[in-house]
C-alpha cells in the first residue's frame, strides 16, 4: 500500500556467496508454512488414483515380513532372539520402510520440483525435508499394525508387553531415522540434480543397505569385534534400538549405537554443508 512507510520494508541484499554455509534457521522458520503445505500436498496426492490407497503403507512392510518369515525364518532358520520371527522382522521393517521410502522421495524431491526451483525462490532444503515429513504418515499406519501384532503375540504369550520406561525411546529412534534419511537425502538429492544416475542407483543402494542392517537377522550373528565397525551403518543403531524399545529384545546398546549416532551426525552435518554449497547452482543445472 502506498501508505506503508519505507522504513518498514524488508531489504533483501543479493550478492554472490562464497564458502560453506550452514542452515539459515531463521529463514526456515519464516517459511514454516511452506514446509507444512508441501508436506500436506505430498501426503494428499500420494495415493490419489490408486485403487487401495493408504493400504499400500501396510502392504509394503507386511508382505516383506511374510516373505522374510517364510524364507529366512522358517526355511533358513535364522535366529530371532527368542521372538516369533514375524514380529522380529516386522518391528524392523516398519522403521526401515519409512527410512527407505523417505530417502527415495527426498532424493527425487529437487528434480521432481524442477519447475518450481527454476521459477521461484525459497530455501531449497524445504523440499527434501517435506518429503521426509510426509512419509511419516505411512510410518504411523504401519506402526499401528505393529502395535496390533504386539498385542496379538502377547495374547498368545509369545512376547512381553513393552516396558514403559523404554517406550519413550521409540520417538527418539524414529527421530534418528528421520535425521539419517534427511542427511543422506541431502547428499543424494543434490547429487541427483547434477547426475541423474543417482536416481537409478538409489533403489540398488537401498536394497544393499537392507541386508547390511539387522532386519532379517539379529545383530548377534555379527562377531563382536566387528560390531563397532558395523555400527558405521547408522541404521544398525536405529533398527536395533527401535526393536529393543518395543519388544525388550535387542542387542548391544553400547559401542555400535554410539558409532551409529556419530555416523549420523557426520552424514547430516556434511549433507547440510554440501547441499548449501550446491544450492546456488540448482536453478542453473536442474
Amino acid at each position: 500500500m502506498a501508505t506503508e512507510s519505507l522504513t518498514e520494508l524488508p531489504v533483501t541484499r543479493i550478492r554472490p556467496t562464497h564458502g560453506w554455509r550452514f542452515l539459515n534457521l531463521r529463514e526456515l522458520w519464516e517459511y514454516r508454512e511452506l514446509i507444512y503445505f508441501l508436506t500436506w500436498r505430498d501426503i494428499k496426492v500420494r495415493y490419489k488414483q490408486t485403487a487401495i490407497g493408504a493400504a499400500w503403507a501396510i502392504i509394503q512392510p507386511f508382505f516383506t515380513m511374510v516373505v522374510f518369515s517364510l524364507f529366512f525364518g522358517k526355511l533358513a532358520r535364522i535366529p530371532s532372539e527368542g521372538l516369533p520371527y514375524p514380529i522380529f522382522a516386522y518391528s524392523a521393517l516398519v522403521p526401515w520402510t519409512y527410512f527407505a521410502n523417505s530417502l527415495t522421495q527426498a532424493t527425487n524431491s529437487l528434480v521432481g520440483h524442477q519447475q518450481t526451483i527454476t521459477k521461484i525462490y525459497f530455501p531449497r532444503v524445504i523440499l527434501p525435508l517435506s518429503s521426509i515429513l510426509g512419509a511419516l504418515v505411512d510410518f504411523v499406519i504401519a506402526f499401528a499394525v505393529l502395535v496390533g501384532m504386539v498385542f496379538f503375540y502377547h495374547h498368545k504369550g509369545l512376547v512381553g508387553l513393552p516396558v514403559v520406561g523404554a517406550l519413550w525411546t521409540i520417538p527418539l529412534f524414529v527421530l534418528l531415522s528421520m535425521i539419517t534419511a534427511f542427511g543422506v537425502g541431502l547428499w543424494l538429492s543434490a547429487l541427483n540434480v547434477q547426475y541423474r544416475d543417482v536416481r537409478y542407483a538409489v533403489p540398488f543402494l537401498i536394497q544393499l543397505w537392507l541386508f547390511a542392517t539387522p532386519i532379517a537377522y539379529p545383530m548377534t550373528i555379527v562377531p563382536e569385534r566387528w560390531r563397532a565397525l558395523y555400527g558405521l551403518n547408522p541404521m544398525v543403531g536405529v533398527i536395533e534400538g527401535f526393536r529393543r524399545a518395543l519388544l525388550g529384545k535387542g542387542t548391544i546398546w553400547g559401542p555400535s549405537l554410539t558409532v551409529s549416532v556419530l555416523a549420523i551426525m557426520v552424514i547430516i552435518i556434511g549433507g547440510i554443508f554440501y547441499f548449501r554449497k550446491m544450492e546456488q547452482t540448482f536453478a542453473d543445472v536442474v
Partner: peptide, 30 residues
Amino acid sequence: RITEPTEGYAEVHGRVGSLLEVGTGFHPEL
C-alpha cells in the same frame, strides 16, 4: 533470488512477487 550472481550486488526493498511463475507448484490431482 532464484539464481545467484557471479559478481556484483543488488538490493531489493520490499517483498518481490513475480508473474513469471504463473501456476508454479500446481498439482493436477488437487
